[in-house]
Amino acid sequence: MKTIRRVLYPFSLLYAAVTGVRNFFYDKGIFKSTAFSLPVIAVGNLSVGGTGKTPQIEYLIRLLSNHNLKLATISRGYKRKTKGMVVATPMHTAADLGDEPFQFYSKFKDLTVIANGNRVEAIQYLLEQPKCPDVVLLDDAMQHRKVKAGFYVMLTAYQDFFYSDLVLPAGNLRESKCGAKRANCIVVTKCPSDLTNIEAERIKNRIKKYAPQIPVYFSAIAYYTYIYNQKDQQLLSDLKADYVLLAGIAKPEPFFKHLKKENTLLLRYPDHHNFTTQDIEDIKQKASGKLIITTEKDYVRLVGKIPQNQLYYLPIQATFLFDESEAFNQQILRYVMPSI
């Protein structure tokens, strides 16, 4: 791996130079960046996938909904089969919207969900509606600089820190590490629940080399104690060990580790995988009638293709460590509602 990185490193320098010039042009106003009158929160990262954006956005949806704010999310809708702007309705599927937007729409009934790579167009559409949202949440928009968000939540995954990585193609960074300075806060995601204060301070000190004035928070993934489908729920502790685990997400290891028993069959697919008819037949054959537990993202792509009584998903939530939720919440709410 080190040899490959050394070979690719010159290309990473070129990639970093190109993205650096692009950011410079946006910073100086040479490239147009549109700001809007309503609060816009962008959730993103510097790296390619797997940092936990979906549970973080869902955390923000719950937080802001609890303050009676009308919300909209805008996502690119990665690997969706439609083009242009799609405003979610009950007629749409995960194939129309993309798995993450469809998941948002399925879970939060008062949420406006839009799939559109052109975030400027999508926000302008929202502003023209009779019931314009109070807050817009942009999914995976750290590098989408055509919109000037009012608040940036940057995520970096534990043990996959941006400060230890390289720019593409030698590493996984979409831009140089100094891009962290654009964030209003940085959340270290997927931390172990027993993370120590000493380790947290060490991580903060590394981050502050690139973003010295930015608040840093630590979060973990909390797994539900039940698995669900459209009609049923089952307590995990009541399940027999003889089930199948299926995941088509960027980094499925924590999901597998949480549920895996001795001899559990693991079915792995690429991130955002579009399950073909042949895939479904292979899954059914390998599962051989056993219960299939998958992630929530995969469930929205598999529901209706596998017998309902056989397919379940395990929900997750982002939860803050060290009693930091109040500080994070207040930072978000002060931006959205400055008068509080």
Rank of each mutant, 00 (worst) to 15 (best):
G117F: 01
A122S: 04
T51D: 07
P90L: 08
V120M: 13
K257F: 09
Y59N: 03
K131E: 13
E58A: 00
R145D: 11
I4Q: 06
T277I: 12
V113P: 02
I30T: 11
I4S: 02
K107L: 13
I306T: 05
Q233R: 10
V86H: 04
P130E: 07
K177G: 01
G29Y: 04
Y152H: 14
H273R: 14
T225S: 08
S193W: 15
L291M: 10
F31T: 13
L314R: 02
Q159G: 05
L265S: 13
S193T: 15
L46N: 04
Y223R: 10
Q159K: 11
K131F: 14
D110V: 06
M142D: 00
L138Y: 12
L60D: 04
R22W: 10
K284T: 05
V167F: 03
L235Y: 04
A318K: 00
K79A: 04
G84R: 11
T112W: 00
I4K: 08
S219N: 14
F161V: 06
L111A: 07
C191W: 01
G44V: 03
F11H: 11
E281Q: 14
D139K: 00
A200Y: 05
K257S: 11
T295G: 05
H272P: 05
A16D: 11
V48W: 06
K286M: 10
A170I: 01
D96I: 05
K231M: 10
D160A: 11
S75L: 06
Y210I: 02
A241H: 13
G20D: 07
F255Y: 07
D238C: 07
L195Q: 07
Q103S: 13
T54K: 01
R334Y: 05
T54G: 01
S65P: 06
N45P: 00
Q278M: 07
L97R: 00
